[in-house]
Design a protein around this nucleic acid. Sequence first.
DNA 1: TGACTTTAATTAGATGCCTGACTATTAGTC
DNA 2: GACTAATAGTCAGGCATCTAATTAAAGTCA
Lengths: 170, 170
Amino acid sequence: MLEQKHLALLEEAERRGVASLANLRGCFELLALAGAIDRDCAARLAPYRLSEGRFVLLFLLHGQADSLSPHELAERAGVTRATITGLLDGLERDGFIARRPGLEDRRRIAVALTDTGRKMAHALFDEHAEWIATLFAGFTAEERNVLNGLLQRIWNNLGAGAGKGPQAHP
Amino acid sequence: MLEQKHLALLEEAERRGVASLANLRGCFELLALAGAIDRDCAARLAPYRLSEGRFVLLFLLHGQADSLSPHELAERAGVTRATITGLLDGLERDGFIARRPGLEDRRRIAVALTDTGRKMAHALFDEHAEWIATLFAGFTAEERNVLNGLLQRIWNNLGAGAGKGPQAHP
DNA sequence: TGACTTTAATTAGATGCCTGACTATTAGTC
DNA sequence: GACTAATAGTCAGGCATCTAATTAAAGTCA
């Protein structure tokens, strides 16, 4: 279940007699699985002319009674405003959202779903949530907890080493 | 340990009373961890003017006595030839690799490391492998196996559902 | 009031990835 | 030997992401 590049890296590691081969493999399996989930997600959304980024904006707007500004969307989606501009361009072109000029503050733009966008968001959310749920089909609550605990420990190790890396050519 | 967008999705799911909330959270934790590892990896390579893609090419060439063609690099790295062209452009500009015209087959180009590139690859590989190993600090072999088993089951679920997704507007 | 600072959105330019089209070269076929 | 197939590399154009620069609008304060 690894990717091409991971296999190549493992071979090189083996050639060099790297001690932590099992750790490398474990890490690559994690990354490969996440990559596969992302690709599957993208493939599921593509028929609707949506990407993951666009999908996030769609339901951010759907969860809101009125409109949101690009600034707020950027904050809640966790990307920069420049990225939001591009995503909104696509969503607007495909008729899912509309930009309206701000009324009180004329710097601020009001982004709102169109009817098409609202219907799409409504229909897609449950389907998407269900798909994710199927990934854990056959898992007990206990197993989910074990997995979560292990991932959490890796996460902590990641944070612990942060900033201690190579600092050359800064 | 979740990302901004995942938090937003979970809130929406909660508002809607989605049944599989725990599964959603588990999936997002997996994706967030993989994303964090990728970002950390990129941050570690950036000071050397390398991305993950460029790094892969670097050690693919390093594991080879002579040169490789862009075609072979694409196969082994698991990306398209067009992508390789872009990565090689960057590596060549920064002096890590050189393109030489093919001798027997004049369609084929020979890509080889420069001295700079060779030194860089040599120095970076062990450091990188060690960094990855630290992510699993404190893990026993048994724990790694458990993690691997759980990931494998998710992988299987992913494959099982493939192609059954929405097929609208193809 | 008028000059400065901050904030909002966009644009410009980079990277990495894709697909699809194009060019050059080689190989195969009749 | 000439036409066609396949192959190698690249380019064009698209998407998502970033940083930095630009423009417009508000706010601040002497």
